[in-house]
Design a protein around this nucleic acid. Structure first.
Lengths: 226, 226
DNA sequence: ATGAGCTAAATTGTCGACAATTATTGCGTT
DNA sequence: AACGCAATAATTGTCGACAATTTAGCTCAT
């Protein structure tokens, strides 16, 4: 019996891409910092060729910005840029939620319900850290987006925007910060989906995200007036 | 006097990226066809290194799909995928139009008006080809999106989705096919923006795009039932 | 004829070295 | 001491060659 080799990535460039992306989102490579090809190449034990390919793919994910003949820098999001992202997210997740309401089966809704119940018990427990808050919140949104059935929408939201959101949250240390309210809104959303009420589902999801956007707008105004 | 060298792109990889992208969108490299690194490299007179970087960036633009150890293929959109794109576009351009209504100045609205008047005269002229139809239509949407003031939204719609739309239209030979109706809808949208009616602007734009989406849905059903 | 298995050709992945550009350091002048 | 400039160091861009993998073609047995 041959050993089962867990082939995480077929190519070294792909492997480097995933690891660097994780390092950026995790905050190990701080936002705004310059990426040295030679340094990273030796760090991952690969040549500069595959590494450059990985960087080009990171650019496609909007996680780094490349300046020709100068180098790549990890993106650093300011508040106006984060607001731009939230505007897009509000629109797209509203769409996702409407589509989910149209297509979700009874089993799908039950799974969503169970997810929320898990979150509720976790909120009431003591070892509920802000990290799990964030991940729990993202779990819920991931599920909804996947239920939309629009693969490109899923790719766009979960494959691009969410990495940027994670990055921004880690950069500013901003946690969702209102777990009970968020859970309540999540429950309302699931109820609307279960009732197959497309319009209400979209409205509630947009409002849910708009409340997070408003926090950013307040922070921006606060920054401008002080 | 030294000759003025028009430095279109700083690097060969970037130059190749733009040229290949143009070739794909133009249809010179047909959808679904495989991309040979050696062939393209010699065609553009560069080495395989920069070419591979260009391909990785094309993957980021969703114009090619890469299979490790196999190669890159130009994407080939079927009707369900095109519908997915139109769903996203409907949502995002609705957002863009609402933002544009909120921010557009009187001069902006006047420029939009003049653009539509140019289109009107072109429609009534004889040498009005479907190619210019499409470009004129895109012109209008470009302007609106730019007026939204959301740079990331502009990047997303005009830098990614629109290339895919062009590709799909060229692949299927589907022209907008209702220039008078489209122009009328464009005029209504501009009027709503000029009145700073955000909700109506968003509604009209979404409806405008939804009508194109419906054409695709009809085609899909027709394909399924025949 | 058809299909499995092997061999060879073609294609992709990776590397190290060199060229070109940019960033830095140190010097000299004002 | 501050500024500009030149030489140098560091970094990015590019190339050609080799390794690894996939694909194509061929042989041979059923």
């Amino acid at each position: 019996m041959p050993e089962i080799e867990q082939q995480l990535s077929a190519t070294r460039a792909d492997e480097a891409f995933r690891q660097i992306r994780a390092a950026i989102v995790r905050g190990d490579i701080p936002p705004g910092s310059k990426i040295s090809e030679a340094s990273l190449a030796s760090q991952y034990g690969i040549s500069r060729g595959p590494l450059r390919e990985a960087i080009r793919r990171l650019e496609g994910s909007k996680l780094v910005q490349i300046q020709p003949n100068v180098g790549a820098k990890v993106v650093s999001l300011d508040i106006p840029q984060a607001i731009e992202i939230y505007e897009i997210r509000e629109s797209l997740e509203g769409l996702a939620c409407r589509l989910a309401a149209a297509r979700a089966t009874a089993e799908d809704c039950q799974a969503l319900q169970q997810l929320l119940e898990r979150h509720e018990t976790q909120i009431r427990s003591d070892n509920w850290m802000s990290y799990h808050q964030q991940e729990g919140d993202l779990d819920f949104h991931y599920q909804i987006i996947q239920l939309s059935g629009n693969a490109r929408l899923f790719e766009l939201l979960c494959g691009e925007l969410y990495h940027l959101l994670r990055l921004y949250r880690r950069q500013t240390g901003a946690q969702p910060s209102r777990p009970e309210q968020a859970l309540k809104e999540h429950q309302q959303i699931v109820e609307a989906i279960a009732n197959k009420d497309e319009e209400l589902s979209e409205l509630l999801m947009k409002r849910h995200i708009a409340s997070a956007k408003k926090t950013l707008l307040d922070k921006l105004n606060q920054t401008l007036t002080e």
